[in-house]
Amino acid sequence: MAVGTGRAVPPSAAEEDPVAPPGRARRRRSRPESVRRGDLRPALLFLSPWIVGFLVFTAWPVGYTFYLSLTDYDVINDPSFVGLDNYRAVAQDDDARRAMANTIFYTAFQVPLYVVVSLGLAMLLNQAGRASGFFRTVFFLPNMTPPVATGVLLLFLFNGQNGLVNDVLGWVGIDGPNWTSDPTWVKPGLILMSLLSVGGSVIILLAALRNVPEELYDAARVDGAGFLRRTWSVTVPMISGSLLFVFIVNTIAALQSFTEAYTAFFGVGNTTYSNEAAEFYVIHVFRQAFEFLQMGYASALAWVLFVVIMGITAVQLYVSKRLVFYQGDQ
């Protein structure tokens, strides 16, 4: 049972066709390449709507934002080049550091919890039989809720005086905190609230679970493995590719958290009350851009976040090489 070894090694020509002579293998490898070359033009033609869209609506704005990050720009007047001044200002910006620390804290706790809850629910659904479809829909429904509504809902569910969360805690004798004003509890409240949207990840992991061959579980049972052992040694390795995907995508999403926290603590939920504990990095970027009209500086802040996300993702991918198993690598 070759699970959990992870590292993807390209198959050699001989592995492609063990009985073929070396020369034959080279010919067979080159033929598909020539076929692909011939298909390239029509393929690009079919892809062109996406390519043009990507260039116009993603690549160009990203590139232009980098240019703006080197300027003093208030949107109203023309940008003026200031070199790396904005990046130097970012390095000295205490508020940016605090916002980044908030974001890293949120990400460090939210993502693992999110993945664990997603996996737990997916495993339950995998055992649910006919009821699985109904519960899939139920779990996915909160994903259809606008994030702004989720932000407002947070203020009611986590209300320190009469919120449902504290009511439930009260049943077991716990005097719940003021989730929406105590700086210590603001981020935990946001983390718990984010679990409402696990539905998307649950669906992905459920699909992965259904692809795990039943024979592996049978073999493990014959070997005397219990539920936890089967989960750890069969389930997790076999769906590790999907887990990595969910982990990376949610890490990026967590690092870009904005709407729920902004709504609850800076936007429509509170026009004047705010809580620094909820000021995530993207909220800081947004406020610099659209409240203080410092679009050049905000662009520099955004590029710093881009680099941070790239770095974290690269580390995740590097570490995953030793941990993730892809079935195609067998």
Binding site: S48, I51, V52, L55, V56, F57, A59, W60, P61, Y64, V75, I76, N77, D78
Partner: peptide
């Protein structure tokens, strides 16, 4: 393709106020 995209997006910059 790239030049066309850049031209199109460049047109959307506007002249700004002030």
């Amino acid at each position: 393709v790239a030049a066309g995209a850049l031209t199109v997006s460049g047109c959307a910059q506007g002249s700004g106020g002030g």
